[in-house]
Design a binder for these strands. Sequence first.
DNA 1: AGGAGCTTGTGAACGTGAGAACAAAATCGG
DNA 2: CCGATTTTGTTCTCACGTTCACAAGCTCCT
Lengths: 251, 251
Amino acid sequence: MTRASSRRPGPPTRTERGIPEATVARLPVYLRALTALSDGGIATASSEDLATAAGVNSAKLRKDLSYLGSYGTRGVGYDVEYLRYQIAREIGVTQDWAVVIVGIGNLGHALANYSGFGTRGFRIVALLDADPNLVGERIGDMEVRDFAELEAIVEADRVSIGVITTPAGPAQEVCDRLVAAGVTSILNFAPVVLSVPDGVDIRKVDLSIELQILAYHEQRKSGEAALPQVPELPAMNGLTDLPSVGGGVGA
Amino acid sequence: MTRASSRRPGPPTRTERGIPEATVARLPVYLRALTALSDGGIATASSEDLATAAGVNSAKLRKDLSYLGSYGTRGVGYDVEYLRYQIAREIGVTQDWAVVIVGIGNLGHALANYSGFGTRGFRIVALLDADPNLVGERIGDMEVRDFAELEAIVEADRVSIGVITTPAGPAQEVCDRLVAAGVTSILNFAPVVLSVPDGVDIRKVDLSIELQILAYHEQRKSGEAALPQVPELPAMNGLTDLPSVGGGVGA
DNA sequence: AGGAGCTTGTGAACGTGAGAACAAAATCGG
DNA sequence: CCGATTTTGTTCTCACGTTCACAAGCTCCT
């Protein structure tokens, strides 16, 4: 992450185009809320209205928006269409991004069928799988193509975003191929930690991790003070007689 | 969020069972890394090894683990099986959690087929949908049941976790029904902000938001200094003649 | 038995994010 | 034209999260 080239200890130097990551993650939420308001025929909204629609605190919302510029009007609020366009432009969804999906199993299928692909701004240009039995299958108006065609497709369609929906096993190899082909942003649904070179962004969506986080809190609710205090395994103190493996993972 | 009842300004009072949220979110990752090491026949691993496998900094990993207790051995490392059990217990996946999935469209289908449901610890007890055409369909070894049966199922199977895979429209209503039926943790895949009463935990997984975050960074990479500086909409300064709608969203 | 060599657990420094509070700007009514 | 009212943009403070750096503790070798 090489951002903000020259940063002297002076003032934070706003407008250095340094939008905090936490804010970036919320902009899409605001965008969706604005779209909903717009569809509902609302032309103007206050930060309070927007915050409610987006499920956040209004002070936070105002601060987030202030990173983009001064797009509101004091005493009035924000023009919904105008703000929507500004956020869309800032995120980059005013242009179209070409996307490939690799791994057409259950989840890949589901994503391929995902009509509209959420908000506009993204265009699925290819569904890829290495399994010959799948290649050629039609899904919606697309056809599953051979993973071997990846490089040609990425180059031809200027693909910069790849979605990995393979099982854990082949995910890293698929990732490497995507990166080598020129993809610089990856959305990973496979339950593994992928390693990518600098300059490539990666985000992970993991169902079972989300469930486990819920389970943790759920356990707190039901048990609370009635937790079995440290029910350690029978006799694990005898760590003494371990072959000094010294780790077999990292180098 | 009523956690940590009495917190005086003294020392942080560790072992008050207050594990930071950021740490909780990483525990499942460590759990998976440990399982992988265990399957690979590794019996002991250092924080460095684990950190590499989990894709984090080793200092962070050690601090995270320290919230659970002192489960390592200085000069040696961590016993993989032992640590795995301790984390599993802390998260709560040593017991089984009953889960219902509501909305059996593309995504619901995919999740229903998701073999093993990631790590063990979760058991899908019902697939629900309100569409009569879907009710009765078999998916794997389960059958889609009518959403109307929700309350009976939740009570009979002690369901505490609900997964919403409906379209945006009905999601809030489904959510309300789940909560009313007694579900206290919800994983939401629908692209809306759900509101729930206190005491109910909710997590959101949103494909298009993830893509938009990637797009933002992608735009920075390609354009960098060559961004079209504020191409404002034609003439949006004329905000003056707006009907003072005053917001039509929150109350 | 004692010292050398590792690795954990944690205190402290630093950076980022959240929220309260308020000054600045814009509208509206008289 | 002026004051009251509304709502933004921003400043300040506090809490949270990350990283460094090192003492404490364990093992192994001589």
